[in-house]
Design a protein around this nucleic acid. Sequence first.
DNA 1: GCACTAATGGTCCAATTCGGTAAAAAATTT
DNA 2: AAATTTTTTACCGAATTGGACCATTAGTGC
Lengths: 224, 224
Amino acid sequence: MSQETILEAVQPERKQQRRSIVTQQKLLDAAIEAFSENGFKGTSTRDIAERAGVHHPLITYHFKNKEKLWHAAADHIFGAFTHALANSLAENRQMDPKKRMSTMIRIYVEYARNHPALHKVMIQEASYPNPRLDWLIETHLKPLFETTFEMLEKLQKLGVAAPGNPAILFNMIRLSSGGLLTLGNELKGSSGIDIDDPETLDEISDMIVRLFLPGEMPPRSSTA
Amino acid sequence: MSQETILEAVQPERKQQRRSIVTQQKLLDAAIEAFSENGFKGTSTRDIAERAGVHHPLITYHFKNKEKLWHAAADHIFGAFTHALANSLAENRQMDPKKRMSTMIRIYVEYARNHPALHKVMIQEASYPNPRLDWLIETHLKPLFETTFEMLEKLQKLGVAAPGNPAILFNMIRLSSGGLLTLGNELKGSSGIDIDDPETLDEISDMIVRLFLPGEMPPRSSTA
DNA sequence: GCACTAATGGTCCAATTCGGTAAAAAATTT
DNA sequence: AAATTTTTTACCGAATTGGACCATTAGTGC
């Protein structure tokens, strides 16, 4: 979590003021929200400043320019998610693989509900080829996905996860959870699904586990 | 298919010229592409005209304004998809329910590959509440979804489709197919999935059928 | 071929918005 | 109180916005 930013590199002869941290935080949150809704091109720095309740030149002051603000915002939300995920996985280190994966799914569903911007930003940038997408893939997506691929493959060998290309399988899980919640505004009207109902979230998580991890864990052998 | 547009309402004392239809077509295609990439707000009419290779005042001439162009473009792509779907379903009228649903999935996967704008536009508009989303739901989504819900419920009763809320199930299918292909630009880099490979499309379709329609059709009884 | 209209091309518009800068004012830290 | 960080206010020039206007061209119906 080194989002004390950018400016730290210059030369902080004096320590950063608290209100400065607050406005940076507000700007990052507002930026993520705006970028996730309207994409990079479709978002103006003025819109972001307004959402943050802050004067727009502060963006230049704190983040230099729009591009750097986008990167900082992406780092911010991915960092927070990775952190939440790592925490939860550390807690469940001794659980069996199926339980661990189920937990990850549950966390992601919950996270996607509370921070839909995480998935939305990926969609926005994947919308057409651009350098930000490449950066996102290399910096955040690949590291995040790799461990999950491995976990899934292991589960497939154990007969727990459904067979087939694990990469495709993983992405289907990703879309059935995060992608589904991203459509929140539409689901109620088109399908009568209310993602604000906590029971709905459980229903989604349970269904994903049932669909994608249909097998049961084999009884633990003494040698392994 | 009444996308001969808008102007027909005025009073066509003479019949529409062929080149006019061509430019309208080009504008509709360009509009869908642009709107799907950058959303309504993020798209300029000039961008659309440029993509279409057409002078931008022609948008005003043919579609009155940006809003009406969006609606015409949405009608256009949803009409085309509904048409393709209906055609294929008509061909397979005598097939058993599981086969029919599998066919629908296959069609949607293929369609989403060749016309990613269909799904992208829905995502763009669902990104935040707005009147276009409401219109989209009422005009196109609900009619399109209703029949599928029913088919799915029937398949659940037959033990073919996975159990659980059919609306959620349906939307997971929708996202595992169309939503997945929408991420095309990202999937290669992040997961090594190449959606330009026809085999990948088959793999996706097959996996969806296996995951969501795991049961086999019961042998046909003589009375039903 | 002629008259009429639909369609296009090219130009212009006024308004707004864009990202970013500069310098004064205010708030904090030392 | 001095020094420095942060915020505020005002402003910039460039680009873009959706749309209007009219002369020209192409196609239609006779």
